[in-house]
Write a protein that binds this DNA or RNA. Structure first.
Lengths: 229, 229
DNA sequence: TGACTATTTAATGTATACATTAACATATTC
DNA sequence: GAATATGTTAATGTATACATTAAATAGTCA
């Protein structure tokens, strides 16, 4: 049997990676809400693998701040308190405004400019149609593009980590917040500053944008007593 | 091996944590330079434990960007290129200047002000005595205090992660860089801005300080062709 | 010789075994 | 009945076993 030709097996940490992806997905999609508990053995049985890859996946998720591994009670999905949100937005504020500055410094390719503008336009049309879900997706796309184009891979990865942590809280506050009209204007202004190669303006505009967004979200969380979601 | 009547054990991830600490120490202290290779089995034998805790420690170190786990060649200590240093300093620039802003906003306790000033004073005396080692330690202490006092634990942890990654490169460039006179002045100015509760000034002063420091280090690395150390 | 294949080696990813011990339940004492 | 002591359970941390497969080596034929 000609099995020596090309087996096409290349993945190495197949199960560990799979467990990591599945668990992360469940957390981000809110399938497992904050506080959800799960035992290593349960997970292993459910995912059809042994405890070893589960443990390794949990270590990674713990490092990302998504779960907490408690000595005898298994893993617990971490919640986001108003204070957590404040911390996260302070970090996003400075990292993303640095990203905006860097993008303005290095300039955009035509392709990149098109994508950025497309994201802002999508935000506008979504807002005009009162479609908050779509708006949120376009907004997230904009922020991701920004850190993508800044050229600093570490920064990108840190920002994405923050995004993941704040993701569920953002989803939940989406309906509670006022119409994000000014967000769209802010983003246009940022793109504008980037296009005219003004790093300082890009940084400052985006910094103020993120600061306001963060303060608003924290206020909402506090007002609704969403201490840990 | 480990069943020979050990002391009353109470910690839970004793070996994993121990392996993590030991390996991290070796990397930070440059006992293992960039590029150093080690096999899981070797490490297990050397540290007197099985491969399991070693693996778990390596996963953590990999997430911190200190090592790379390569499919068949064991773990490899990651080096820092000039580009890496640039990325790290861009991140430090914005995170730390945010920290300075936050500290200025919330103000210092007497104790905190004393500690910050002590760090700057130590930097001055070390510089007067041409003791770069001591200067570097005081400088690091200053930066650590800043993120410590800002009240944002996530920010603190991210900054410390950057510090760890850049640590060896900083050690090496310490003798190659010009006398860090302006660093001390910058720090005094930052403390000053914090003491008079001027968040914007604190942020901007510290931002420029970090930016310059980063640019200088990158230049040194490039000039000396230290592509990966 | 040199490219190409078969064979061996060894490091890994995963599964499983096992001793430990925190958490819970039950029993005991006053 | 409350508090403490004792026993039981079960989840974990670690060790070990094992199958897989990338890399190294030897072997084969042009």
């Amino acid at each position: 049997m000609a099995n020596t030709k090309q087996k096409a097996v290349k993945a190495r940490r197949l199960f560990t990676d799979e467990a990591y992806e599945i668990l992360k997905r469940r957390i981000l999609d809110n399938e497992w809400p904050a506080g959800h508990l799960a035992l290593e053995q349960e997970l292993a049985a459910e995912l059809g693998m042994s405890r070893t890859p589960i443990r390794e996946a949990l270590i990674r998720l713990e490092k990302e701040g998504l779960v907490e591994v408690r000595p005898r009670h298994g893993m617990r999905v971490l919640g986001i308190s108003a204070e957590d949100m404040e911390e996260i937005y302070e970090i996003l504020t400075c990292l993303e405004s640095m990203a905006a500055e860097l993008v303005a410094k290095r300039g955009l390719t035509d392709q990149q400019r098109a994508e950025l503008n497309a994201a802002v336009n999508d935000m506008d049309t979504a807002l005009a149609q009162d479609n908050l879900e779509t708006w949120a997706k376009a907004d997230e796309r904009f922020h991701k593009l920004l850190v993508d184009y800044c050229g600093n891979r570490r920064l990108k990865s840190l920002v994405e980590g923050c995004f993941d942590q704040a993701h569920r809280a953002r989803l939940l506050t989406l309906k509670l917040r006022p119409k994000p009209t000014s967000s769209n204007e802010d983003h246009r202004a940022t793109v504008n500053a980037i296009e005219r190669r003004d790093p300082t303006a890009a940084r400052e505009i985006h910094r103020l944008h993120r600061m306001r967004a963060g303060e608003m979200l924290v206020e909402i969380l506090n007002k609704h007593g969403l201490s840990s979601l």
